[in-house]
Design a binder for these strands. Structure first.
Lengths: 210, 210
DNA sequence: GCGAAAGTGGCAGACTCTGCCACGAGGCAG
DNA sequence: CTGCCTCGTGGCAGAGTCTGCCACTTTCGC
């Protein structure tokens, strides 16, 4: 009600979008950050949407405009990761071998995960706490497989939808990446598994088996 | 309230378990069947727990004693399938090669799926309708991978938990099976894909690529 | 048969999610 | 600068899932 006492977070980042859009994006990001912080602190199920709204200073009704479901708070970072991967594959030339393209892309994705570990770790940890079956964004990688196969086939002018050999190759590559991800971020242990002190070397090792 | 007018479904199947257990099992199975029938008819989201309870003649409170969540109605048949698979692997001798064991087990599992298609088809169809991310029992195969790898390693006295090579082999095998499953039961098409008129031959083809 | 144990149903309540409407602030002519 | 006009927001009511609690009935072990 007062005439905007102190807006310290949004000075004039980029005047490209309107003020309204920037406010919205800022509020949305703040909500996600607040939620992830609460999840890391108390666990996914122990945090209600009302709690998140209180921390982010928005109304529950507004929350569900930003995120269709509470689960989307967890899937969002994973989805960002998937999009990063899809972008890596799409940018390659048509002549390259599928397996090589996948290997390189997944190796890069490993770097992405390590770079964003602060953001991803609480997510994967929360996923482990959730009742196991319902909403498994990690496995959502498998959903991503179809898109990945399509990009891969399109890249070299292959058939659409992709034949099963292409899809199988993608599934095998993603499976390898998932194996590494389990070792690196899975369950209770954070990074730096005892058997594999160097995550990057371990990723190379796993991907070489494709 | 009347003194049990007509119990046509439970004559005296096997006196091995108590009457109570049989009643319970019968009621539970009837609830699951009623639910799957309703899902096939109207779609997963359009059917409420109250609807299922009315069809199965139980109270909503009782429903949640049988099935912790509504989603479990879908995961149950998939879980049965997973257990069948685990049993197939556990029964092999220690000398056999891991890849051969997996190939044979998954080939057998394909027969299981085809034999139970009446039960599984509405399930997979319903899964496709559910909002894509939340609760994906098909992908639950991936959760099964860890158990499968443990059985496989235990079978030949390997390390526990299994090393990443064993887990990768399992993941690749399951991925191949999933590719076939998508072709066979995926999305809207039932069995008998246009490109692969014979499901069994297609399964052999995919599994040979392991 | 009889007490103990277990299954069942009803009730109230928490939580997620949605449709609806009113309010106010940013955007866009004129 | 002024007046709309769109759009984001919040409040409210309601459906649907899921849980804790208690009373009632049925079954089991002695």
């Amino acid at each position: 009600m007062l005439t905007a006492p102190d807006p310290p977070g949004l000075p004039e980042e980029d005047a490209i979008d309107g003020l309204r859009d920037r406010k919205r994006a800022h509020s949305r990001a703040a909500t996600l950050d607040a939620a992830l912080a609460l999840f890391a602190e108390r666990g996914y199920d122990a945090v209600t949407v009302a709690d998140i709204c209180a921390a982010a200073q928005i109304a529950p009704r507004t929350f569900f405009r930003y995120f269709p479901t509470k689960d989307d708070l967890l899937t969002e970072p994973v989805r960002e990761m998937n999009e990063h991967l899809a972008g890596l594959v799409a940018g390659t030339d048509a002549g390259a071998d599928d397996a090589d393209v996948l290997r390189a892309a997944l190796r890069d994705l490993g770097g992405y995960v390590l770079a964003h570990r602060d953001r991803l770790t609480p997510v994967f940890r929360a996923i482990g706490q959730v009742s196991a079956v319902r909403s498994s964004p990690v496995l959502m990688l498998s959903v991503q497989e179809r898109l990945l196969a399509e990009r891969l086939a399109a890249r070299r002018g292959g058939p659409q939808p992709p034949d099963w050999r292409t899809r199988l190759l993608v599934a095998r590559a993603v499976a390898a990446f998932r194996i590494w991800l389990d070792d690196a971020m899975g369950a209770d242990r954070g990074f730096a598994d005892a058997d594999h002190p160097d995550p990057v070397a371990h990723l190379d090792e796993v991907l070489a088996a494709i």
